[in-house]
Structures are given as structure tokens and as C-alpha cells.
């Protein structure tokens, strides 16, 4: 497998969308090619960074209160 093919398949590899044989070919390639390994790892790490930074936030209590009020008003309108 060439560097260019690895470049094209980086996301499918990360997403587990490739068949076992192709996966193994990529794994074999990156053990001998630091550049492709770093590229795949850094694409994967980018996702992890965003997952940590944008971890779920709590709905603020005041926003929850306003939401209930809005929905209650809507229910009244519908009656």
C-alpha cells in the first residue's frame, strides 16, 4: 500500500470502516512508516481533543425553567 492510499483511507481506518485485510495492510505499513503513522495518529487525536474540550455541558437551571415556561405556554395555546 502506498502513502497516498493510506492518506485517502485515514478516516475509514479510524472509523473501523475497512475490511480486516486492508486494516492489516495499513497497520503493517505504519509500523515501517513513521510519517503515515503520525498522520493517522494526529487525525485521531484531533477528534479526541475536541471530544474532551466539548464534553457534555449541563443545561443551566435558569434555561431549564424558561424551557418549561415556554412549553407550558405552548400547551395552553394548543388547547
Amino acid at each position: 500500500m502506498t502513502h497516498r492510499q493510506i492518506f485517502k483511507k485515514v478516516c475509514d481506518f479510524i472509523d473501523g470502516e475497512l475490511d480486516e485485510a486492508t486494516c492489516n495492510e495499513i497497520k503493517k505499513h505504519i509500523t515501517a512508516c513513521p510519517k503515515c503513522r503520525i498522520y493517522i495518529d494526529t487525525v485521531g487525536k484531533t477528534i479526541v481533543f475536541y471530544q474532551v474540550k466539548d464534553a457534555p455541558k449541563r443545561l443551566p437551571a435558569a434555561a431549564r425553567k424558561r424551557l418549561h415556561a415556554t412549553v407550558a405556554l405552548k400547551l395552553k395555546e394548543k388547547r
Binding site: 497516498r4 492518506f7 510519517k35 495518529d41
Partner: peptide, 22 residues
């Protein structure tokens, strides 16, 4: 592009713990 990536000195910034780097 592929060519642009291949022409670079890639830095491996995956080793440090995320919370330390963030």
C-alpha cells in the same frame, strides 16, 4: 493535499495526555 502533508516535517503531538496539552 497529500503532497502538502508529505512535504512536511510532521510533529507527533499525540504522546502527551490530552488534559496536559489542552
Amino acid at each position: 493535499s497529500f503532497e502538502s502533508i508529505r512535504s512536511r516535517e510532521l510533529i507527533d503531538w499525540t504522546a502527551d495526555p490530552v488534559r496536559k496539552v489542552l
